[in-house]
């Protein structure tokens, strides 16, 4: 799976590449408007992660051009420009998602995974991890054929974990994934603990091994192979 990351900030780009490569994506990078333009017109990518403020031009213009040549290309905008109008313009121009900076890497990874899934598997979209199988489009999960009853939040949590298998997802990333900006209102993570605990219980009760591990109070890791 090939991704194009358009980002002018070298440190941030390095983080993206490092995290996403470990997720088994092939990452190409562009750090200027011209580079981005060249690469996105010449090649086709599963998903393009596009920053809006670039040396040499505006990311929104790049997006317009991309839509002219490759209509329907999958694009996630990441931007420090949190203006409401930027978000709306971006989505109107055909971007699939908008992730304001600063974001969590697991969140970006989950959004890329969701986008790629949506593009590739329009009908059935089944994830199989160990005994666990998840039908993403129908929002159903089962362990060894036995259906799980998950709340909306628990299912979202499961998708985040599955998109970042083997990686540590911090509590903050989970909180923001589950409740968006409202997460920032609390410094405590009671709701994260509660949802993870419930999900874990439902999985193990259905006969799955303990896939979800806590890592030193920092966050959680989903690992089907270790269990």
């Amino acid at each position: 799976m090939k991704l194009l990351l358009v980002e002018d900030e070298p440190d941030l780009l390095a983080s993206l590449v490092s995290y996403l490569r470990a997720q088994h994506y092939v990452c190409e990078v562009a750090t200027t408007y011209a580079q981005g333009q060249e690469k996105m017109l010449l090649h086709s990518y599963e998903c393009i992660v596009l920053d809006l403020t670039l040396p040499g031009g505006d990311g929104l213009d790049l997006l317009r051009e991309l839509q002219r040549h490759h209509p329907g290309a999958a694009v996630i905008i990441t931007s420090a420009r949190a203006g409401v109008d930027d978000r709306i313009t971006g989505l109107e121009l055909g971007a699939d998602d908008y992730l304001p900076k600063p974001f969590y890497l697991p969140e970006l990874s989950a959004r890329i995974a969701a986008l790629v899934r949506r593009r590739h598997y329009q009908g059935t979209n089944l994830l199989q991890v160990g005994l666990l199988s998840v039908d993403v489009s129908a929002r159903r999960a089962s362990v060894a054929g036995q259906p799980l009853t998950l709340t909306r939040t628990e299912f979202d949590l499961l998708l985040l974990l599955l998109a970042n298998q083997g990686r540590v997802i911090t509590k903050g990333a989970i909180a923001e994934h589950l409740s968006g900006d409202a997460a920032e209102q609390f410094d405590s993570f009671e709701h994260v603990y509660a949802h993870v605990k419930n999900l874990k219980r439902k999985l193990t009760e259905a006969g799955a091994a303990n896939y979800i591990k806590m890592v030193y109070g920092l966050g959680y890791r989903f690992d089907a192979s270790e269990a």
């Binding site: 440190d11 983080s15 420090a80």
Partner: peptide, 29 residues
């Protein structure tokens, strides 16, 4: 936003480090 994005993503990568000790985790939190 950009420095914060760098800070946040580097921390995301830091917690992935193999062999992270509990003491280090205590500093990261």
């Amino acid at each position: 936003q950009t420095p914060l994005a760098i800070l946040r993503t580097k921390l995301d990568l830091l917690v992935q480090a193999p062999g992270l000790t509990e003491e280090q985790a205590g500093h990261i939190e």
